[in-house]
């Protein structure tokens, strides 16, 4: 494939770097708060990659849900932990981590990347342009994914109510 220098290429490399550097910093950070910040950086890079793939809706949702909601919750959880800053060396075992990381990497290459791309080096590109409107129609129309969508929302609501019930003070129930 011919290498082409344009805005999309530059953006791809910039966002890939942000994603990978953020991910590396998360696992090496000795400070939990910093770790969450790097995690956000990595997630931000992923949303940029979605943009280069012409999926603006996913990109916005990525920022909104992962950075705006989940990562903020992470910061709260992190601040409640006792050893926030100087994580003890107990948690850092380079040999075991290295073995785990290599095993995971091999698993991803063998299990996901090779089956997907080895047989078909250039995945076919669909001519159809999918817009955000199509996504909305697919999720809400009767012959689309409306039932899985509703079931998922019901499940999430049930989980949320369950969380409230568990966290609630029992004195109120009497």
């Amino acid at each position: 494939m011919e290498f082409e220098f344009n805005v999309v290429t530059v953006a791809f490399f910039v966002f890939s770097f942000i994603t990978l550097a953020g991910g590396y910093a998360v696992v090496t950070a000795k400070n939990l708060f910093r770790g969450t910040i790097w995690l956000m950086m990595s997630l931000f890079g992923v949303s940029g990659l979605y943009l280069t793939l012409s999926a603006p809706f996913l990109a916005a949702v990525q920022i909104l849900v992962y950075i705006g909601a989940i990562a903020i919750l992470f910061t709260f959880a992190v601040m409640l932990t006792r050893s926030l800053t100087n994580l003890r060396d107990l948690y850092v075992r380079p040999q075991i981590n290295l073995v785990g990381a290599v095993l995971l990497f091999v698993l991803i290459v063998v299990g996901v990347i090779l089956p997907l791309f080895a047989a078909n080096p250039q995945p076919p590109v669909s001519d159809e342009v999918i817009r955000t409107v199509d996504l909305g129609v697919a999720l809400a129309s009767g012959n689309g994914f409306v039932i899985p969508f509703e079931v998922a929302s019901l499940l999430l609501t049930a989980a949320m109510i369950g969380a409230i019930v568990i966290a609630r003070d029992t004195d109120d129930l009497v």
């Binding site: 603006p56 809706f57 916005a60 949702v61 920022i63 909104l64 950075i67 705006g68 909601a69 817009r131």
Partner: peptide, 14 residues
């Protein structure tokens, strides 16, 4: 952007 409003909400959450 076709996701203009969502973009606003996402960015503002930063």
């Amino acid at each position: 952007l076709e996701i203009g409003v969502l973009y606003f909400v996402a960015v503002a959450s930063l």
